[in-house]
Computed example of a mutant assay.
Amino acid sequence: MTSIRTIALGAVSVLALSAGSALADGEVNIYSYRQPELIQPLMDAFTKETGIKTNVLFLDKGLVERITAEGANSPADVILTVDIARLTEAKDGGVTQPLNDDDINNQIPAQYRDTDGNWFGLTTRGRVLYASKDRVSEDAITYEELADPKWKGRICMRDGQHSYNIGLFASMVAHHGAEYTEKWLAGLKQNLVKKPDGNDRAQAKAIHAGECDLGLANTYYLGLMKTNEKEPEEKDWAASVKVLFPNAADRGTHVNISGMALAKNAPNKDNAVKLMEFLASDEAQTIYAEQVFEYPVGPNAKVSEIVAGFGPLKADTLPLVDIAANRKTASELVDKVGLNDGATQ
């Protein structure tokens, strides 16, 4: 069985996630890829409102494998995760079940939920450009422009095969086709100042250090850096960049999601549905968005003050299922053009 790290929240012990106790009244079991401290305020609010206890199992990886191995006796009720890839992985792995719930469907736009009801988006994050405040005068940009030679030696990014980048590249395939995207990736490659490396925060660090002028990154990392009291140097990195929302003047910026799904064999299904309805509410999405510096998908949920300071996000309306369908092609194109090798002389 896949090795995992577990964290039990509140007064709940890890043993509460055994199949036997999962059947107790007034509980719901959550398997989460999301860090426990980020979802704890949501769990506290749900328990306060309903009296239902939440048992959270945090997994670094192997969620689908874990639930598959547990089989029909799995205690998992609700799956929480980030990234469309992991949501579709859960569906394709056969560990979710469809849910047709009017309260949830009315809250979550169709582009952010599975057509069969196997997963639902809760918050979005834009795949944006961090730009040097000192060296980039532009306040508008498109993804297509990243292949323009004017940016040669000025762009940095993390591994081209990382799921965040593959999502963006898959959206380019969906919009423009594979042939165009291959040429675009080749142009982007030639504009890289170095081989892709690090994480999204590292791109802000590189801009602060003067190594590059533009960095592909998710919006929420900027909020995390701005509020990082444990590593205050990250505040300096964040202060050196501004956010450019690509394609804001036309189709909109590519977004990815955090989301939820109803586990296939949920032993506490009624409570699971109550939790999912709560998570889809404007109240919960406002709490969630404040915690993770993301954009809620609910019609009346509010963004945090820090996120509002990034500027308005006009999201690409392309359904995420269409993007997910092109991820394999995008991954193959990354290898085909040798994106991770960096620019050639």
Rank of each mutant, 00 (worst) to 15 (best):
D159E: 12
V128C: 13
V95N: 04
S32R: 01
A238S: 07
T253M: 02
Q203M: 11
N100M: 12
A308M: 01
Y112F: 14
G153K: 04
G338F: 07
T6W: 13
Y112G: 08
K314V: 14
N106Y: 06
N73M: 12
E145N: 07
Q35H: 14
K242D: 00
Q97E: 11
A330P: 02
K302Q: 13
P41V: 03
A72M: 08
A8T: 04
T181D: 00
A8Y: 04
L99G: 01
E305N: 12
R86F: 13
E332Q: 12
D213K: 11
N268M: 07
A206G: 04
Q97A: 09
V64F: 08
S3V: 14
D200L: 14
R5S: 15
L320G: 06
T96F: 06
Y164D: 12
A174T: 13
E179L: 10
D92M: 08
V334P: 03
E305C: 09
A19L: 04
E305T: 14
V136P: 07
I52Y: 05
G210A: 06
G153Q: 02
A24P: 06
G198I: 05
L188I: 08
N105F: 08
G20E: 14
T6R: 14
H254C: 09
I4W: 10
D77I: 07
A186D: 14
E283G: 09
N326T: 08
E229F: 00
N228M: 09
L9S: 08
E229L: 09
E294G: 03
I67S: 02
K242N: 01
V56P: 09
H162F: 13
V64S: 09
W151Q: 06
I84N: 10
N247C: 01
K336I: 06
L57S: 15
F293L: 05
G210Y: 04
A90L: 03
V128E: 11
A324V: 02
K328I: 00
D114S: 10
P196T: 10
T2N: 14
P196F: 07
E211R: 15
L333W: 00
I79H: 02
L313W: 02
V78G: 05
A248G: 06
G198K: 03
R66V: 12
P149A: 04
F278T: 02
A186L: 12
A90C: 10
P319M: 01
I7Q: 13
L262H: 02
A90D: 01
P75C: 07
M225H: 05
T317Q: 15
D134L: 12
Q97L: 06
K91C: 06
P267G: 03
N73Q: 15
S304I: 00
V12H: 13
R201V: 10
E89R: 13
A85D: 13
V297N: 00
L57Y: 11
S32A: 04
T317P: 05
V255A: 01
D270K: 12
H176M: 04
D102A: 15
K205V: 10
G298I: 02
K242S: 00
S240N: 05
Q190D: 06
N55H: 11
Y180V: 00
W237P: 09
N100R: 06
G215V: 05
R86H: 13
V14N: 11
L320E: 10
V255L: 01
